[in-house]
Structures are given as C-alpha cells and as structure tokens.
C-alpha cells in the first residue's frame, strides 16, 4: 500500500513540476529555462536534500519512462508529414546526415582512443547527437549508461544552440538548408526549436534530419560497437 503511495507521489510530483516549468519556459523562453533542465534540477535537489535514493524515485519514474517507447514510434508522424520536402531535398539530406553521423560518432571514438576512455563510457557517449528518447534506448541496447547518455545529449543540445550559431557564422554556413540540417543532426530537438529562427525550410530540415539521424544512428551505433 505504501509503495503505491510513493509511486503515485513521484509521478504526480514529476508531472506537476514539469507542467509548472513548461509554463515558466513559455513565459521566459531562455535556453536555461528549458523545462527538462529545470525540472531535473529541482527533483535532484529534493532527492539529495531529503536523502531519497534514486531507486525509490524510480518506483514512480519508471512508469513515465515506459512511455518513451510509444513516443519514439510517434516520431514517424512528423517524418511522414515532411515527406514532400524530404524527397525534394533528398540529396542534401542524405549527404548531410550521413556525414554528420560519421563525424558525430567518429570524433567520439577518436577522442576516446586518444584519451584512453573505457568501452562503457564510449558506448555511453556514442548516441549523444541523437534525440534523447532514442539515445537513451540505444545506450541501453549497446550497454552504455542511459542516464549519463541523457546528460551528454543535453550538453550537446545546449552547446549546439547557444554556441552553435556562432560556429556556423564563423564557418560560413548561411543557407537555411545547411543551418537546419546542422542543428537537427547535432543538437536534436533543441536544434529544431532554434531552427524556427531561420525560417520554415530550416525548420523542416532540422526536423527531418533529427529523426533520420536517430534512425540511422540506431543501426550504425551497434555496428560501431561491434567494430571497436
């Protein structure tokens, strides 16, 4: 009976906090007010202060986590809606996301070899450019640490939208197609949100490239794990 209470408490707490933080973010749309970031910080502080172990929190949390599966399946819907744009720019898209995937995963493997990072951490870092729900699930499939993967995905996303626009400016990436593809394949959902500033086409490109690189990455990641 007590367990059901704890389960419900953590589910309601997470949903309530998230809902509040999302409203806050809608009013003050700064990157650091992103609801996932703020909700995570508040819950972490609460758990540490009240000395509640993570496993206890997860008695409720696991029920929310289970919905990641159907949410990933649902990504087919926006991809389907973008199919006309996808076909129209298919060459730039295929070229962009495949080189992006090679760079994103290749550079991690290269750095990891250079600094002698252990295998488990490489597997954890490998999905870092993918959209978080897929990254978490891929990390699990290739025996990384899903929680740390989620943190690295957020770091990739935030650096991609905060410093990324400057990097693109310095390197002469000006066209909406290039900007959209770069943001979607390197900074996932956060990149999509940022790409709205560069117009409709950039937004479509970011959205398509996020989903396609997640799908491709889910197949390429395990192959790389097998090779290294």
């Amino acid at each position: 009976m007590q367990n059901i209470g704890i389960t419900l408490l953590f589910i309601v707490l997470t949903i309530g906090l998230f809902w509040f933080m999302r409203n806050l973010y809608q009013r003050y749309p700064f990157a650091f007010f992103h609801p996932v970031l703020t909700t995570t910080i508040v819950i972490c502080v609460l758990l540490v202060q009240l000395q509640i172990p993570y496993t206890t929190y997860m008695e409720g949390g696991q029920w929310l986590e289970r919905l990641l599966g159907p949410a990933v399946v649902a990504l087919a819907y926006p991809l389907y809606n973008q199919r006309t744009v996808m076909m129209r720019y298919k060459e730039a898209i295929i070229l962009g996301i495949s080189t992006g995937l090679i760079t994103a995963m290749g550079s991690i493997i290269l750095f990891a070899k250079l600094y002698k990072i252990e295998k488990e951490m490489i597997y954890t870092l490998l999905p870092k450019s993918m959209t978080t729900p897929v990254a978490i699930q891929l990390s699990e499939s290739i025996s990384g640490i899903p929680t740390l993967t989620a943190v690295f995905v957020m770091i990739a996303g935030f650096s991609g939208i905060i410093i990324g626009p400057l990097v693109m400016k310095w390197t002469g990436i000006e066209q909406p197609i290039g900007k959209g593809l770069a943001l979607g394949s390197a900074a996932h959902a956060l990149g999509i949100a940022k790409s709205t500033e560069y117009g409709e086409l950039a937004l479509s490109m970011a959205s398509v490239s996020m989903t396609l690189s997640a799908i491709m990455g889910a197949f390429v990641g395990p192959i790389l794990v097998y090779i290294i």
Partner: peptide, 17 residues
C-alpha cells in the same frame, strides 16, 4: 561532447551548403 557537436555542425552545414 561539445567539440564533437561543433565539428558535426560544421561538417553537416558545409557539406549540404
């Protein structure tokens, strides 16, 4: 992670441009 993210953005952006 940050360096890898910027590299990815540059390569994807340049290649598609």
């Amino acid at each position: 992670v940050m360096v890898s993210t910027f590299l990815t953005m540059i390569i994807v952006g340049r290649v598609s441009t």
